[in-house]
């Protein structure tokens, strides 16, 4: 009934027919994912309410995107690479401190992890983290100072080493050796993929699992293979509504619905198709072949993102020490 009414209004040229605009500010590798999600959700939303939904997207480095939102980019929704970046937005009062409790699974409707991408046939025989510090092995990773993905890489390596060598000193020694094998530190994850794939540099690329899968399926079929290390980190890219902006735009409801949609079976399927690990058990089972079992530890092991950021990546932190210790 309402739909007919709306159409009539549209035909009559009245301006009340609702065209709602949402802005989703996201990080780099999610472009393809959210293109699919946006189309599917807009269709569903129109069927349900009759309103035309236009979802604008902005992608970039996770930290840079969060900074844009802090500085006034009026995102209704943020979908970033790590919780620390959304914490930073919360610190400025744009959304409540407890944002991560508002949606299931720490507000992460999908997860990913860090894996190794090697050249076909694995000529250097890379099997686990320990192999990365062998002499003559070149490792490609972006710069943790400028890339969210690189921070997950770093913490994954650290987590493994801490367990293996039984302490901080051993872990630090390991990552120091690891970064001695890094010939190029690109500023972002996609830059690193290009360096590895197109420039032919390096023996191993430390990458988001979703990026590695994308690379093997779409960038160079038969040229690369994925090696899953014995343990890795559970990367939980979080999503949330930016309350203050959504209130201003009057989009709180649709923004909320958008994020809840991400947890539905339909969206979880899209998520899996885009190489992110779904939360839904059913979808996960269906795509089990795509996502090998990995022993995962979480960011909680480091006391959460705020603590990890401060300890490892802030100026003078562990990453800086690794380099200035030379």
């Amino acid at each position: 009934m309402r739909r007919i009414f709306t159409s009539a209004l549209l035909l009559g040229g009245a301006a009340t027919a609702a065209t709602i605009t949402l802005l989703n500010v996201s990080y780099d590798p999610t472009r393809e994912l959210y293109q699919d999600i946006n189309a599917a959700f807009a269709k569903q939303w129109q069927a349900k309410t009759g309103d035309t939904l236009k979802i604008n997207a902005s992608h970039g480095g996770s930290g840079a995107q969060a900074r844009s939102v802090i500085d006034g980019l009026e995102a209704d929704i943020v979908t970033l690479a790590l919780a620390y970046d959304i914490d930073a937005i919360a610190d400025k009062g744009l959304l409540p401190e407890n944002w991560q409790k508002r949606l299931p699974y720490n507000s992460s409707p999908y997860t990913s992890t860090i894996v190794f991408l090697v050249r076909q046939g694995n000529p250097k025989g890379i099997k686990d983290w320990g192999d990365l510090i062998k002499p003559g092995v070149q490792v490609i990773t972006p710069n943790p100072k400028t890339s969210g993905g690189a921070r997950w890489n770093f913490l994954a390596a650290w987590g493994w080493a801490q367990k293996k060598y039984g302490g901080e000193a051993g872990a630090k020694d390991y990552v120091t050796k690891l970064f001695k094998n890094v010939p190029v530190l690109d500023s972002g994850a996609r830059g690193s993929t290009t360096t590895f794939v197109e420039r032919g540099i390096g023996d191993v690329l430390l990458a988001w699992e979703n990026e590695a899968l994308l690379a093997t399926r779409e960038l160079g079929v038969g040229k690369f293979q994925i090696i899953v290390p014995s343990v890795s980190i559970l990367a939980e890219p979080p999503v949330t509504v930016v309350d203050k902006n959504a209130a201003k735009h009057g989009t709180a409801k649709v923004a909320q619905a958008y994020l809840q949609y991400l947890y539905t079976a339909e969206a979880q399927e899209i998520i899996a198709k885009n190489f992110y690990r779904p939360r839904s058990q059913d979808v996960a089972t269906k795509y089990a072949a795509q996502f090998p079992k990995v022993n995962l530890f979480s960011i909680a092991q480091f006391g959460g993102w705020r603590a990890a950021q401060k300890k490892f990546f802030a100026d003078g932190g562990v990453f800086d020490q690794v380099y200035s210790g030379r």
């Binding site: 480095g61 930290g63 840079a64 969060a66 900074r67 802090i70 930073a88 710069n143 100072k145 400028t146 890094v182 010939p183 190029v184 530190l185 690109d186 500023s187 830059g191 950021q309 990546f313 802030a314 100026d315 800086d320 380099y323 200035s324 030379r326």
Partner: peptide
């Protein structure tokens, strides 16, 4: 940034440090 390799103490340029600091909201 594409051609330099961005290695600290070797090929890291000053603007990259600025970007790095911004990334920490500093």
């Amino acid at each position: 940034v594409f051609i330099s390799g961005n290695l600290p103490f070797k090929t890291e340029i000053a603007p990259l440090l600025i970007v790095g600091k911004l990334e920490q909201y500093d």
